[in-house]
Write a protein that binds this DNA or RNA. Structure first.
Lengths: 148, 148
DNA sequence: GTGGATGCAAAGAATTTGCAACCAA
DNA sequence: TTGGTTGCAAATTCTTTGCATCCAC
């Protein structure tokens, strides 16, 4: 999943286009997101960015701000919580998520067109959809014991 | 969405088949679920069943038990929380959910086969998937004011 | 009688909010 | 200077847990 060259530039542009400001913390968070290049939880991101525990609030606020300019996508986990992924503004896609280690793989199957059509027929507007696949990845298989 | 005649009987059988017991509270909750015949939150179910506020714990425990025998399906909401729906044991389907009033409509489109195949290819096991469509239903449209 | 069910209180996780101090543009 | 950003503490929401008591089978 190597990023295109101008990715970071486009992201910074997207941020500065709005009323948002680029601060040192945001740079670090952005750097960490780019370095990891995979969806992470808010806490994991904070750690990777080298921010102290108390800064979880800043992480959430930053992610929310970034989500607002379309460069962060939120991936709900099966039970609770979610992961955040740095994406190009119009790159819609879903994921396979390991429910154990949270490793994710990109999923390029989507029913957006059909779902929105059906939803509109039912009278819905401002339609949005969610689709994620959960399972145990190769590294998290239960030790194949007796027969469980 | 009228239920088949023997629905309640099959449900009670499913419950008694396991180590579960039918108690007065469970009967009331089951009755409320049947009466509403649509997905509801734990709190709404408690109210509909006429149980006191303090019984939310019992509602959650009951729903968890029922989920275990396959007669309850959980529908995650867009932001947080979820709805619970009474279903026949093998009736897999998804939903359109109004993010405002939580009204839901059944969605009979599903990519289960494709998703599981792709997931297996990636080395995943114990695969599960989630797909829900959110929007504003007819009754919850924003008053079409100026141009917002 | 026995083991599952319930009541009450309290814990828990993830995320959000309020407000004063701070700093990027 | 100005208004977005951050720090700290605390609140919120939804859900789960512990444990003594209760009741269905």
């Amino acid at each position: 999943m190597k990023r295109a060259k101008g990715f970071l530039q486009r992201i910074i542009q997207a941020i500065k286009r709005g009323p948002l400001r680029m601060t040192r913390k945001r740079e670090r968070l952005l750097g960490a997101l780019l370095a990891m290049d995979r969806p992470v939880s808010a806490a994991a991101l904070r750690d990777k960015a080298g921010l102290p525990e108390s800064d979880l609030v800043t992480v959430y606020r930053t992610l929310e701000a970034f989500e607002g300019v379309g460069i962060i996508q939120r991936i709900p986990l099966e039970e609770s919580g979610c992961l955040f992924e740095l994406t190009e503004p119009d790159d819609h896609h879903h994921h396979f998520v390991c429910r154990e280690c949270h490793r994710t793989e990109r999923l390029d199957l989507c029913l957006a067109i059909e779902l929105e059509e059906q939803a509109r027929k039912l009278g819905f507007t401002q339609i949005n959809h969610l689709m994620e696949v959960y399972g145990l990845c190769e590294d998290c298989q239960p030790a194949a014991a007796s027969g469980d």
